[in-house]
Structures are given as structure tokens and as C-alpha cells.
Design a binder for these strands. Structure first.
Lengths: 237, 237
DNA sequence: TTCTCTTAGTGTAGCACTTACACCTTATAT
DNA sequence: ATATAAGGTGTAAGTGCTACACTAAGAGAA
């Protein structure tokens, strides 16, 4: 004979750390809050998950409502649950992160009254954020620093066509250190996962660089999942 | 004028995946449940977090109550929150994992009526577990497979003094493939993080092996945090 | 048309690390 | 003494990393 079991009701939130890359600068997507607590503060886009909603789905939905961005591939980062992280009581939050192309997509259109605006902020200029969002942001920065050295996430941040110099600039921005041009190109081209296009830069006042694109087919064939991209050094000064 | 804000009440759980190594076999710590749902099933040790309890602390407390183990260094793995993962409603769970030495510590003493018994199960013999615990277990196995190649976690599983063969057996058990003896030893000794002791195996009926211990001081000096331990190959075995 | 400016693009030598591979040594048990 | 069982060792070939400096191409100015 089975006894009746209590029904649980969970309340928790998700927060999204979205990275973009533009004009050689790594940026993160922030919102300005329009409601207390932390009204008028800058924060990561995030909100409560609905009771019958998968967590990944919730992250997608909330990101869309708060910023207008859709179909971003979000991955779980970490769950933050300090007892006092939220002034309204014990509220844990599951942090997600993603990288995205910024070419053109400047039209951030929040459709939630909780958000005054959404905007891209250079990672080097991020101020103190609401709640524990500074901590969350920093943890995700560490995550992508590590991840870029074993996974081809860089290509998610660049436009379809890019030059090797742009690619190198992105690596340098994420790793926060200079890389050797010749070695970088040699290594990248050696992997055999870049396809050179019959197309060069237009309208530049110097020698035009060749465009490349990421060859995902070859990448998948070569490596089931990942490979070692950049030697992980001690520290990126 | 500030309006009154609602107070949140979170209900969620933690689950622990604890690995041990004994007689050349990698094992995971399981419990047999004594309460519904999934009464009599095998499961990972895990339970609800208290409202005013940090998540890490909760993991420690619950692990102790369910198994008698104390002062284990637990790290967060992932948060699982499928809407239907728990029959009593929406209950998300934060999974933790850890490695520990098994020398002697066979005295698993649950002090909770929820647990019939706690025991070590070879990872290759783990059956279908309660809830989504099979999924959680598999994700943590992947995690330590990756982690052993850039972090000295192996030494947490071995006794203080160990032979190089034991160390190699452990790597082979976790990575699930054979390694070359000479290369393995060369590499390990080259790191300079092992200290050879003036002591050999006793009571073996063959040539006694030298004991080593992990030199954490040298390790910390050499690498701020991590290093590349084992080349990560394509697939196991 | 020539000159200047700016970035694109290229090669090599030394070193360190990885891999593949087979035999002798040491201790115990019979 | 002999068999058994694991411990312990070296080398050569190949691969990948690092450091490093000049020429090539294109645009714009003079």
C-alpha cells in the first residue's frame, strides 16, 4: 500500500551569458533592469523558470523575451545558490552561456517590462552587476577561455567568411594574450578545417586578405568531438 | 517607495557521485533506497537541500547522513531538471562528484532511515538506477575521464604510498584503455611531481615495487593549476 | 608614375614531447 | 636451482611547438 507523497514545487531561475565579437572586441550581452530589486542596475538576462518548463527551454524563452535573440545554442555553465544571493530569499540560478555572431544583429528588442534595454558591453568594461552576476560572468569567461583551446567555438563568433587575421584577433581577445602570426596560421591551416574561398577583402586600403570559412564537415570527420586548439599556457597576463 | 516583494521558497536536491579505486577496479558509491519513490532501488546518495543551507554544505551533509563519509571534496558537476525526472513533481537536482581513497574505509554507516545500505559498486556493473541517476552517473564518468588528462585527480584515489603500476592501473581503469608501461613511467617521472620513497612493497611473491608519493608542493610550484596529463585520444580502448 | 603606408603572407632550425618496441632484474615459491 | 611473476629500463623516428624577419600586394598621396 503506497502512501501519499508530497508534491514538490521548485522555484529557481536561469541566467544567460552571451558572448559576441565585433571590431576586435569581445562583448557580453547585458540588460538594464526595470524592476526591483536592483532596479536600474545592469545584469545578465535571466528570470524565473516556469513549473512545467525544461531548464534549457526556459533559458531560450527568457533570453528571447529579454533581448529578442532567438535560436542561440545555450550550454549549462554552473548553478549558483548562495543562501543570500537574492534579496527575496533562497533562489538558486542555473547559468547558461553561449557565443554568437554579431554581424548586423544589433536589433536587441526586449519584450518584457522587466527590462529597460539590452545591449552589448565589452567584457573589459563590465561594471559591478546585480545580484551575483559579476561572479557568474567571470566564471563563464574562464569557461570560454578554456573551451577555445579544445573546441572550435571561435567560429561561432565570427561571420561565415573571415580572414585569418580576424580569427587570430578573436583568439587573442578571448585568451587575452598575443599570438605569433606565422605559428597561428600554420597551425590553423594544418588542421585542415578551414576552406579558403576565392574571395578577398574589398575596399581596404592595403593588401586584401583572403577569406576563409570553417569547414564543419571536415571538422566532424577528423575529430569525433574535440581537439587541442591552443596550448594552454600558464596565465594570460 | 518600495513595494513589497514576494519571498521565494526553493525546493531542490543534490546528488553525489563518489568514485573510489580498489584492487584495480574503479567503483562508485551507491545506496539502496528504503523509501518510496523507487523504494529498494539503487541510487546515488542525494536528498533535499535545506532552505538556509549552502548547496556545497548540503552535499556534504547529505553524503554523511547517507553513507557516513565526511570531509570529501565535492565539486559541482551539472544540474538536472527534466520536468518529469521526479515522480513527485518538478524537482531539480544539482549533481556533485568527488574522488576518494578507499584504503580501509569500508565502514559505510548510513544514519538515515531513507537508506537501507550504502556500498561500493564497480562502475562496469552499475545497473539501471532510480530517477535519472544513470544519466547523472554517466555524465560524471565522462567528466573524470576528461579531467584525469589535465589534472592530478588520480592521486586522490590512491593511497598515500603507491607503486607506479598501481598508478598506471588507475589511469587505465578510468580511461578504459591500455597504456604503454615505459612511456607511462617516463612521462610521470618527468613531471617531477612524484617522490620516490625508500620503501618497497612487502609480502609480494615477486620483485617488490618501489613506493612513490605525490609531491603536492612541487606540483603547485610547477603549475599554477593544471597541466596536460594524458594525451586525449579519440575513443577509449 | 613613383613613393609611402599598411597589412597579408611566408619558412626554417632547434627543441621537446610522443610513440613504438623487447629484454634483463629481482624476489618468492617450489 | 629453477620457474614464475612482476618490476624496471633506453633508443630511434616522427611530430608538433617555438622563436624569429622579411617580401608581396594594394591603395592613396605626392
Amino acid at each position: 500500500m503506497e502512501q501519499e507523497l508530497p508534491i514538490f514545487e521548485s522555484v529557481f531561475s536561469v541566467d544567460c551569458v552571451i558572448f559576441g565579437f565585433e571590431e576586435g572586441v569581445l562583448k557580453v550581452l547585458l540588460i538594464e533592469r526595470n524592476e526591483p530589486p536592483f532596479k536600474d542596475w545592469w545584469a545578465l538576462p535571466g528570470y524565473l523558470v516556469e513549473p512545467n518548463e525544461g531548464i534549457d527551454e526556459a533559458a531560450q524563452r527568457i533570453l528571447f523575451k529579454f533581448t529578442g535573440l532567438k535560436d542561440i545554442f545555450l550550454e549549462q555553465l554552473y548553478t549558483f545558490g548562495d543562501v543570500d544571493r537574492h534579496p527575496q530569499g533562497r533562489l538558486i540560478t542555473i547559468a547558461y552561456y553561449a557565443m554568437m555572431r554579431l554581424n548586423g544583429k544589433k536589433d536587441l528588442k526586449p519584450s518584457s517590462a522587466f527590462v529597460k534595454k539590452a545591449f552589448w558591453c565589452p567584457v573589459s568594461d563590465v561594471p559591478q552587476l546585480a545580484f551575483d552576476h559579476t561572479q557568474i560572468f567571470e566564471k563563464s569567461l574562464q569557461k570560454i577561455r578554456r573551451k577555445i583551446s579544445y573546441s572550435p567555438i571561435a567560429f561561432e563568433l565570427l561571420p561565415e567568411k573571415f580572414t585569418l587575421t580576424q580569427l587570430q584577433n578573436l583568439y587573442e581577445a578571448i585568451l587575452n594574450k598575443k599570438l605569433d602570426k606565422r605559428n597561428f596560421r600554420k597551425k590553423m591551416l594544418n588542421y585542415g578545417i578551414l576552406k579558403e574561398l576565392n574571395e578577398k577583402q574589398q575596399g581596404v586600403s592595403y593588401r586584401a586578405a583572403a577569406y576563409y570559412k570553417f569547414d564543419r564537415r571536415k571538422y566532424n570527420k577528423l575529430f569525433q568531438k574535440e581537439l587541442s586548439f591552443m596550448k594552454e599556457d600558464d596565465a594570460g597576463h
